[in-house]
Amino acid sequence: MNIGNAWSAWKGLDRQQKEFLREKQEEATLRLDEWIPHLAKIVKFDREADSIRKFLGWTGGLCLPAGIAIAIFAESAIPLVICIFGLGLLVSLWRLSKIDVPNGLNSFLLPFLVLLREETKPDAAVTLKLDLRGFDADDKLLSKNGPSSLVTSLYKDSWFSGSTLLADGASLEWDITDLVRQRRRRKTNARGKTKTKTKTKARRTFDIHLNVRGKDYAIKANPPELDDEIRQKIKQGEKRSEIRIRTQSVSTDPTVAPDVDELVEAIASAYRNLTAPAEERPTA
């Protein structure tokens, strides 16, 4: 934990990066060698801030009771100073938690972009739409119903989508959407004490749209067998062919980012339908 490092990391951020930390949303078209450093700086700050948050929480939490305890036994200004210091730390913690981004940015998004760089030309533009506000933002609520003792809310969170042109001439679009069902059960016992339990269940969908050139790839006559959770649609054309893949997985914690393997495997599922085109001999 080093407050100086976090401060210098914060100072190193530009206006857009600070805005992303506050809003947790961004939509832009940039090259990958612009996207990666842009998000890497945010990750660097977030890592430093994460370690500070722990320190602020513990120290601030201890300062307040310690100040009150000292005030009982000693008549001086010291307990007041300790309490004000503790309060200051807790306020700082609150402000830092407002600009906290999910760790999935570091464990999923950036590694995926680094892998995507392998697959694109250096000057390829990549359009990304990021929404890391979490599934329970107000505008993501689809429905909310049930009595106050059992409220069921349904959220639709499309948090990462993008498109680019790959080095092999194919165009790739992807979208990750979480459909989250949240059940909040409220129970009051005989002594009048109310307890609330919340359960969430998420269905994560990876949508892949791959559009390849007919001169580079042909659709396999016998496409590979698919797992139950994969759906695909293939449209073969003379000049271009389209493959749409949809894979789904169920989890109990929608805040956990997927593994990079999952998204890459979804894209690879589209490529598994392809083969080399039939040999064409020159006509002239």
């Binding site: 892998l115 392998e118 697959e119 790959l166 080095a167 092999d168 890459v264 894209i267 690879a268 490529y271």
Partner: peptide, 9 residues
């Protein structure tokens, strides 16, 4: 080689 799905020099 560069690439994941299709390799190139």
């Amino acid at each position: 080689k560069r690439g994941i799905f299709s390799l190139r020099e």
